[in-house]
């Protein structure tokens, strides 16, 4: 096997094992080990992107990425829902910092304001409303962890393959061609494996003052209310509709929502707790 394939398979197995260890309820040390394993696997995925910079050049980026991914892992795997929400807030802070680092200052501020300021607060509010004790059985016992972790890691591996293979830069393409030429033998005509020039795959980055211009927010305003004004109107209507819809859904104080009448004349029966596989009351009894 090619060494790259070995690394790839090892990454997949390592990531799956780490995620399973992290998500299974059990001994704390084992879960820490799982977190470390999955972090290593995700780091390997990051390192597979071909044109990745060495760490010395992008310390800020790597610190922010580590913060984001670590907080995301914690948000997914912690048992207590409140801690999960707080870790999700940390993830949002990391994402908005990454956005600011990537030349999207307005979006960074918007993400912080909308997500942390509004969505996360509402989420915490509902969590405290519905979950006063903070710990429940179903936070320990989760759905099929093996299948889910395997699916997610294979999905991530496919995405990384996509990034690695089809978004390769010109230098990477030349290196791949050189590899192929060495593998097939020097007697092969070299013209057979010449990669297409990168201009055919992607437009070269324009040398302009676009995203990184100094009047960044003003340009965003120009684009938003110039070319996208119809979408802005539609977004406003959507927000209004969501507001009214949430008020209508939540406004029935007494009893569940009345569905349309069944042809048999009886409304759907309310769910019985006995039909559930294992409810909390069943386990306690």
């Amino acid at each position: 096997m090619h060494p790259q394939q070995v690394i790839f398979l090892t990454t997949i197995i390592l990531g799956t094992t780490g995620l399973v260890l992290l998500l299974r309820p059990g001994w704390g040390g084992l879960r820490l080990l799982g977190a470390a394993l999955s972090a290593i696997a995700f780091g390997a995925v990051l390192a597979q992107a071909p044109m990745i910079r060495p760490i010395q050049e992008g310390v800020v980026f790597y610190l922010l990425a580590a913060l984001t991914v670590g907080a995301a892992l914690a948000a997914v795997s912690l048992v207590h829902p409140l801690y999960c929400a707080v870790c999700f807030g940390l993830t949002l802070v990391g994402v908005s910092a990454l956005m600011a680092y990537g030349g999207a200052q307005f979006l960074a501020a918007g993400t912080l304001i909308v997500y942390v300021g509004a969505i996360l607060v509402v989420l915490l509010f509902v969590l405290m409303l519905a979950h006063p004790r903070g710990r429940a059985t179903y936070d320990w016992n989760r759905w099929e962890v093996f299948v889910s972790a395997g699916t997610a890691v294979v999905f991530l591996a496919m995405l990384s393959l996509l990034i690695t293979r089809s978004l390769a830069g010109p230098e990477q393409l030349a290196a791949q061609a050189e590899d192929q030429r060495q593998q097939t033998g020097a007697d092969q005509p070299a013209t057979a494996t010449v990669p297409p020039p990168p201009e055919e795959n992607f437009l070269p980055p324009k040398a302009g003052q676009g995203v990184l211009a100094s009047e960044h927010v003003a340009r965003i305003g120009q684009h938003l209310f110039g070319g996208h004004w119809l979408a802005v109107q539609a977004a406003g209507v959507l927000l209004l509709a969501a507001l009214v819809g949430a008020a209508v859904i939540i406004g029935r104080l007494h009893g569940p929502l009345e569905g349309p009448q069944q042809p048999g004349g009886h409304s759907p029966a309310p769910i019985a707790a006995g039909q559930a596989p294992r409810t909390e009351s069943q386990r306690n009894s």
Partner: peptide, 21 residues
């Protein structure tokens, strides 16, 4: 590549969380 990789990792973590929680 860096941004795509971090985005893919975040998406996958969200995916596994959606499946398991």
């Amino acid at each position: 590549h860096q941004y795509l990789a971090v985005g893919a990792v975040l998406f996958s973590i969200g995916l596994v969380g959606f499946f398991t929680r």
